[in-house]
């Protein structure tokens, strides 16, 4: 019943996913079942193919886009029935840095993975990440830096979170070309991701899956 939806996600066919979701909703299948048995397993398969080296970033982005198309149909129906909250993550390219393509792709895949994404944009100072935790109740922040000169802003943000007494309330993820697991450990971040799909996997591990199907 869900195989066609699963395949359309795996193949990254956004229009097909949207059509199938509409058809199946009209046939009386619940949005929750479509998500839990079609879309999410499809994205899990895409993640597996990426990890195994059979899929590459463009495939994952295409599938993420297809997931988003499906979610456009299902989201209004889910919000009425889904008792559980979606995890919220704030993403930003750190202060002094304007490279945002990686951050944008992570945001898109996070949204496809069920997270509610608060995009803080680029050139984001530590205080704005702190404000997002304090005022928007995010469970995680994801920082991106593409320059060795801007990486220290990540450490400063962790310090600022500590000083504000908020560090315990939020998971901190870091990424970007010069960033490494070692650097993440050094600055007291919770995790490092080397690419966009891994960032989603890491966020799910740290925060729990973005959208949890209602059983």
């Amino acid at each position: 019943m869900f195989q066609d939806l699963f395949q359309a996600i795996v193949k990254g066919e956004a229009a097909q996913v949207k059509t199938l979701c509409k058809q199946k909703v009209a046939d009386g299948i619940s949005a929750n079942d479509l998500l839990a048995q079609g879309l999410l397993p499809g994205m899990e398969e895409v993640g597996r193919l990426f990890k195994d080296g059979e899929y590459f970033l463009p495939h994952v982005i295409m599938s993420g886009k297809a997931m988003e198309a499906g979610m456009e149909v299902l989201r209004p129906l889910l919000s009425a029935s889904d008792a559980r909250q979606r995890a919220r993550i704030a993403l930003g390219t750190v202060q002094g840095d304007l490279h945002d393509i990686g951050k944008n792709l992570v945001g898109m895949l996070m949204a496809g993975g069920g997270f509610e994404v608060v995009d803080l944009g680029r050139d984001v100072p530590p205080e704005r990440f702190v404000d997002a935790v304090r005022e928007q109740g995010v469970q995680a922040i994801g920082m991106s830096a593409l320059l060795t000169t801007t990486m220290p802003v990540m450490a400063k943000t962790v310090q600022t979170l500590n000083q504000a007494g908020l560090r315990g309330r939020v998971k901190v993820l870091v990424g970007g070309a010069p960033v490494s697991q070692r650097y993440a450990d050094e600055i007291g971040a919770d995790g490092f991701a080397s690419d966009a799909p891994s960032a989603v996997e890491l966020a799910k591990r740290l925060c729990g899956t973005g959208i949890l199907p209602v059983s």
Binding site: L57, P58, I61, M62, G64, K65, E68, I101, N104, L105, M108
Partner: peptide
């Protein structure tokens, strides 16, 4: 144009154009 692709929700186009 890359920024515009993202605004128009075309991440694949943005990725390749970048």
């Amino acid at each position: 144009e890359v920024d515009l692709c993202f605004l128009q929700r075309d991440p694949v186009g943005a990725l390749f154009l970048d």
